[in-house]
Design a protein around this nucleic acid. Structure first.
Lengths: 329, 329
DNA sequence: TCCAGAAACTTGAACGATCCAATCCTGCCT
DNA sequence: AGGCAGGATTGGATCGTTCAAGTTTCTGGA
């Protein structure tokens, strides 16, 4: 029905040239106030919107940010991503960017996807969630000067790129201190195998908090892959071996397993999880809560910093988690 | 470093014209086999990828599909969206489309966002999750001939658009029959207030299954807004009023509440939830499971049908849910 | 051998924005 | 009154692709 409104339509309507309209949009300060007003009125009257494809062709920028959506592993921690993505979409929107989703089953495919997205859509930047030692993805992106931020700090000292992370150690330390304050001394920890950056970090928080309180953590921790069943198994093991009065877990999945293992144990063992997932809220599990909306917002801040101006590498951001108190601790 | 590879670069390399390269990409059958091979070799050798912005400018199609990501309400049912989005991304990818995220706090803003996305990004289609009676969004889109699919059937008879849905009534009926088969007769239902399409549908499945078995459902159901606390409250009410031996719930949130209400009740009351959320899996709640990946795939099928060809309105798809059996029923 | 008709390929224009360089005002100073 | 500086405005070229129309090559039948 209504035919396409281009910059030329607006120009005609406001009786100026196309370039003047373009200036109103991209460099308003160089246009006389009165003219600018006339153009803006025309834009509103006609409902004009700059065509992104045409703009992109000339400028080479797409105002598109890519983020990965995972195949929801055990479904519990997937919801962390869920909330992060929502925050990302919201903040990116406010900054004039849009979020494009992609998936990949492994690193190689993910890197192939990068090439595809960059080549065909000319994406402006990537947001990577989670990083590991020697991550090939960050290396690939850095080599090609593709702007990106990671949610999760780089665990290799060598590569320095913008990142946002939540201080996991501070979270587990806070959890541990709360248990210490409640009078607990035999506070165990169930975490992930040594060698994963995130896992080691979370364990360190627990260990340091115990040390600071003069408690020896020896023998009080267990390691395993993530999962409810694993958490339950290790908790049973701990109960037999060291009879802890409380346990801090590296994830809500592990904590849920632990909860099942202690069912019926008296006196009740306190449990604290990590991530404050909906499951934790549902079953009343006290859990370390990451400020995901804030993290997403800072990711966008860092990216827009790189994209819209300063060439200096922006300062990384380390956010503090909080403790969502419920009835398990 | 390597300068941009355009269709002209490929053309030069394969010693043909730009148009021939374009034909190899978009209409291979009109190019002679030998020439086609030469062009394809050049494409691979140079790592050429068609620039989407330029293509879009000419064709007016962006190969972009928009999907909304919600502000994870109570967090439990949010994970349904999570899984759906992942499926959507995966299938869209295979069909040559990409998924763009957007958010909105209410219908008006959502519609404003449609205008924005269509105007600036020339989106090809929208996927709406969830629909209600007299949904203004579908009306707006239909009025402007914007292709869209809803995951959730239209509850107004009047508007006919492509949709994919899961047969909620079949799900609750299946749950109810399982309970009947296990010997239960006093099977209650906790659902949402009359007037929501989805809620009425799920209740109907339970009622019909009872009728079919010759059981009178009178007095056995309760209605409320969604939520764990509400589920618990209504379950307590039911226990006092009619002492059911089993209950079917319209959501996992309600079912979780019910589970808390029956803690310690003997003999144990069977509970079945709806949506098979991670929480259900975690606490061992039997729940009606929606085939979300399949639903997402069918949404993409319907859209590509509309976008890439046939002008007829495609047939809606109604998928059958299954029962994820766990230890609560 | 020649030509019609089809098939294969090439050329010029256009999509809608921005960039660049040239031109036009306008006010101000001499 | 004339000239000049500076900002505001203008027209033309351009990004990479596809469409439309044109040209060349091939094929087969008389």
């Amino acid at each position: 029905m209504a035919e396409k409104v281009t910059i030329a339509t607006v120009a005609r309507h406001a009786r100026v040239s196309r370039q003047t309209v373009s200036n109103v949009l991209n460099a308003p300060h160089i246009v006389r106030q009165e003219t600018r007003q006339r153009v803006e009125d025309a834009i509103n009257a006609l409902g004009y919107r700059a065509n992104q494809a045409a703009r992109q062709m000339r400028t080479g920028r797409s105002r598109l940010i890519a983020a990965r959506i995972d195949p929801t592993r055990d479904g519990i921690n997937g919801s962390v991503l869920d909330r992060f993505l929502h925050g990302l979409t919201e903040t990116a929107d406010a900054a004039g960017y849009r979020v494009l989703l992609y998936t990949a089953t492994d690193d190689d495919r993910e890197i192939a996807t990068y090439g595809d997205l960059l080549g065909t859509y000319e994406l402006d930047a990537f947001v990577l969630v989670g990083t590991k030692y020697g991550d090939p993805r960050t290396e690939w992106l850095a080599d090609r000067d593709v702007p990106f931020v990671t949610f999760g700090r780089p665990w290799d000292a060598l590569d320095a790129h913008p990142w946002v992370d939540v201080d996991g150690a501070a979270g587990t330390a806070q959890a541990t201190r709360r248990l210490l304050d409640a009078g607990h001394r035999r506070i165990a920890f169930i975490g992930w195998p040594v060698g994963s950056g995130v896992g080691d970090d979370r364990r360190a928080g627990w260990r340091d908090a115990l040390h600071a309180a003069g408690v020896d953590p020896t023998g009080l921790h267990r390691e395993t892959e993530d999962g409810i069943a694993e958490g339950e198994r290790l908790m049973r093991d701990l109960l037999v071996a060291v009879a802890p009065s409380a346990v801090v877990c590296a994830s809500d999945s592990l904590a849920l397993g632990a909860l099942q293992a202690i069912r019926g144990v008296d006196p009740p063992v306190s449990v604290i999880g990590f991530d404050d997932t909906p499951v934790a809220a549902a079953v009343g599990l006290t859990s370390v809560s990451q400020p995901l909306g804030e993290a997403a917002a800072r990711c966008v801040d860092l990216l827009t910093g790189v994209l819209d101006g300063d060439h200096e590498t922006p300062t990384p951001v380390l956010l503090q988690p909080s403790l969502a108190l419920r009835h398990t601790a």
